[in-house]
Design a protein around this nucleic acid. Structure first.
Length: 667
DNA sequence: AGCACGCCGACT
DNA sequence: GTCGGCGTGCTC
């Protein structure tokens, strides 16, 4: 007998011989096997007879066979993960906490793992009381009972909930768990960021007690091993965590909730670049568990999946595009949402100011009442650096990104690669001497606020160094807070009376087909920090912008209709699949580009479109050059095969490093 | 991941 | 002349 063993390493499965007197159920067992003159733990993923051969002579033998740790569906899931994200199975195994499993088994000498799966438990033991319908905003719709029924019946389904507000998103989840949690076995609850674990940990702890286990990437090695130990022994079967928790080694899954499903945090930027939301949907499918995706501003992809009935939409806002959209139906006011007001940034009395007269007036009103106000600007530092003579904007010598002027230090910095230089008053392009600050970052806004509003505002990133303050960051600290939308996510507690995006156009003009969607999500997120009846201001030079108007009206239906029509016209996701291939090189040799072009041409499958290759800046120290190829296809098999072909061909060529990013969020 | 092999800079 | 830097490659 022969077995294929996967090690948690970047290597393909290796084949070993196995003694004749071994147990029959070898698949999914942990084994100790010789590897590179030492012994390592791996997982049996396949079993072969002699007839399946021919096998290489002199193959090594398995040293010992241990516990069963992966079920048939676990192996199916592992293979899917490896195939879909074009990664060696070993990397997928490693991401699925295999090393922690081995460590837990070693440390606690868990003798025999009970192989019974939760799905094998008789129905009578997992029956719960019938749930009440969701009593919230959308009373009358049978959303909640549908989810609860689906969990109990192990009737696989993916639900999409468009929650009116984040607190309602939480309370709906808690209600579902309250109804079914006691009976359901194997539950995963995903939140986009670690800080969101805290607010759910208390009520979930009360509900599940020792069944609950928290899992996120900031957990130390010991705590991670302990969490995994609890899961594989069955002590815990409810996981609350971030992205990686979707890969937690649960013995069967009956329910997965993905809160803030639109969040880019679910997509990994390094290592195995999986999207936890998509993985959750596949895991639910494989495990016959129920999946709930929820968000106050769902991704266009998920909304599309609901319109084609791949997902089931439940109570909440109406977002499914309908044939006769009436204005009343689309205006989702109420729900305790703040007003959204568009401010025209064009013209006006003081053109050179970044805060319009209109906004200044509103700000004075709010500050006079001693209420909280939040200013958002999408750049750190003071400004860009521009030559008045030729219009040239100073750029980083390494990566072509704009340099940012930091007034306090009197230096220019590249926020992408960290390059820094002193400021000069001579233009690098035309030798002109009229060098001026251009545009505004947080520092410049602070200066303007001090002058125009005679207030000392709080700059969020300035206090980054002192974690004590940042964890308590709230509007109570200062009536006026300035920061980037990203930094503003660290603000908690209290509510603002108003928030203002000082330059929403920067967000809308991102060279990415998801720019509008991201802007909408950002605005929705910030609007959650403003009290009901308060206002979110959007300063823009395009007050007539169609999408801004849809956003202002909270017209989700109109927004998704527009977004989907745009994406369909351009064949972007969800109407196609994208795979980004980054080829890193040490030197930009003359033959390299043509070599890549040949590899691309030879690998291109029917139905796969190839964009590029183009050179993009590289952040890597050892590989200073990066060539990017974007694969776009309606046929995911063709896209996958094309990428596999390209990376196989190029990886054989020395000196190249190939990174594959399936379903990239940023392009 | 480890561990070996291998090819260029600062030391006895 | 050698010691050692870590970049590259292999593991049944």
């Amino acid at each position: 007998m022969y077995v294929d063993v996967v090690f948690p390493l970047k290597i393909p499965p290796l084949t070993y011989r196995i003694p004749a007197d071994m147990p029959r159920d070898l698949k999914g067992r942990i084994v100790k096997a010789p590897l590179m003159g030492r012994s390592s733990y791996g997982l049996i993923v396949d079993v072969f007879n002699k007839a399946d051969g021919p096998f290489k002579k002199g193959m090594k033998e398995i040293q010992s066979v241990h516990q069963q740790c992966a079920s048939g569906t676990d192996l199916q899931f592992l293979k899917w993960l490896s195939h879909y994200y074009t990664t060696p199975m070993g990397i997928a195994l490693k991401s699925c906490f295999f090393e922690e499993i081995v460590a837990a088994l070693k440390k606690y000498e868990i003798a025999a793992l009970n192989p019974v799966r939760y799905s094998d438990v008789p129905d009578s033991r997992i029956a719960g009381r019938p749930p009440d319908d969701y009593p919230g905003e959308a009373a009358g719709e049978k959303g909640l009972s549908h989810v609860c029924g689906s969990i109990r019946d192990r009737d696989y389904r993916t639900f999409l909930l468009h929650a009116p507000t984040a607190p309602l998103e939480h309370s709906l989840l808690l209600e579902i768990l309250g109804n079914t949690g006691a009976a359901a076995r194997g539950i995963i609850i995903l939140v986009p960021e670690i800080r969101q674990i805290e607010s759910l940990e208390l009520p979930l702890g009360r509900m599940f007690e020792q069944r609950l286990c928290v899992l996120h990437s900031k957990l130390g090695k010991g705590k991670r091993t302990e969490a995994v130990r609890r899961l594989i022994t069955g002590e815990s079967d409810v996981v609350l965590g971030t992205r990686s928790a979707v890969l937690a080694p649960l013995r069967g899954v009956s329910f997965i909730a993905v809160l803030g499903e639109h969040s880019p945090s679910y997509k990994g930027e390094e290592g195995l670049r999986y999207n936890a939301r998509d993985v959750a949907v596949m895991k639910g499918f494989i495990e016959k568990g129920c999946v709930l995706l929820s968000s106050v501003c769902p991704s266009t992809e998920s909304v599309y999946n609901a319109t084609i009935s791949k997902y089931t939409q439940i109570a909440g806002n109406r977002i499914m595009p309908s044939r006769t959209p009436g204005p009343e139906a689309s205006h989702m006011t109420g729900h305790g949402r703040p007003k959204i007001r568009i401010i025209n940034q064009q013209g006006g009395k003081h053109k050179d100011l970044f805060i319009t007269e209109e906004l200044l007036k509103e700000a004075k009103k709010i500050l006079s009442k001693n209420e909280g106000l939040l200013f958002l600007i999408n750049r750190k530092g003071y400004s860009l650096i521009r030559c008045e003579d030729c219009g040239h904007i100073a750029q980083c010598k390494k990566c072509m990104m704009s340099l940012v002027f930091h007034k306090g230090e009197g230096r220019a910095r590249c926020h992408y690669c960290g390059y820094e230089e002193g400021i000069t008053d001579i233009c690098g392009e035309c030798k002109g001497t009229r060098i001026k600050a251009f545009g505004a970052g947080t520092e410049r806004i602070k200066e303007e606020v001090e002058e125009m509003l005679k207030t000392e505002p709080l700059l969020i990133e300035k206090i980054k160094g002192s974690p004590k303050i940042s964890s308590e960051l709230s509007p109570d600290l200062s009536p006026l807070i300035i920061g980037t939308a990203y930094a503003a996510r660290r603000i908690r507690g209290g509510e603002f009376s108003a928030a203002a995006f000082l330059n929403i156009d920067v967000l809308l003009a991102q060279p990415d087909f998801r720019a509008y969607e991201r802007a909408f999500q950002e605005i929705m997120h910030i609007s959650q920090m403003v009290r009901p009846g308060g206002t979110v201001f959007l300063q823009t030079r395009n007050p007539g912008d169609r999408v801004l108007r849809l956003i202002r009206n909270y017209d989700f239906e109109g927004f998704y209709n527009y977004e989907l029509s745009q994406r369909k016209a351009l064949d972007f996701p969800p109407f196609s699949r994208l795979i980004l291939v980054n080829i890193f090189a040490k030197k930009l040799a003359a033959g390299l580009l043509s070599e890549i072009q040949t590899a691309v041409a030879e690998s291109r499958e029917e139905g796969a479109e190839v964009l590029g290759p183009v050179e993009i800046p590289s952040a890597s120290k050892s590989h200073k050059y990066c060539i990017q190829v974007l694969i776009k296809s309606k046929n995911s098999k063709a896209a996958n095969a094309t990428v596999k072909g390209i990376s196989n061909k190029l990886e054989k060529t020395g000196g190249l490093k190939v990174h594959v990013d399936v379903d990239p969020l940023k392009i």
